[in-house]
Amino acid sequence: MGSEKPKIVAFCCEESGMPAYEHAKSLGLPLPDALKVIALPCGGKAETGYIMKALDEGADAVMIFACYEGNCKYVQGNIRAKKRVDYLKTRLESLGILPEKIAFCPVAPASGARFAEMVQEEVQALDSRENKS
């Protein structure tokens, strides 16, 4: 059985994040067992409520995988998601939650390597924060 930590929730845009995740899997790239993947029709569907709920249920980090700027099928979905994440970060601090726990990650659909890399970076960031405290 795989390890239960770190619990990372990845909200993935159906147009970019999901294909990138599938690609990473098909390449056999290492991803944490406890990674939870949630497909959304657009990165812009990643609501504040979803992100907060994930943190509330005990996620160690939440990542939002969306399209690169200028590539959104719905014109501004990715930009909206990014703005929402930025705003949420400013609010998290006042709630005593580390803003670093949420990350906005643009990714191309055929870029499984980048997907895995960004997840690994998040894992390392989590590790180093844990070691510090």
């Binding site: 159906e14 999901m18 067992d33 939870k36 993947v37 497909a39």
Partner: peptide, 12 residues
């Protein structure tokens, strides 16, 4: 760390 199953919620 391995390439085992992650829990995935797909678009219905």
């Amino acid at each position: 760390m391995s390439t085992q199953m992650n829990s995935v919620l797909r678009l219905p």
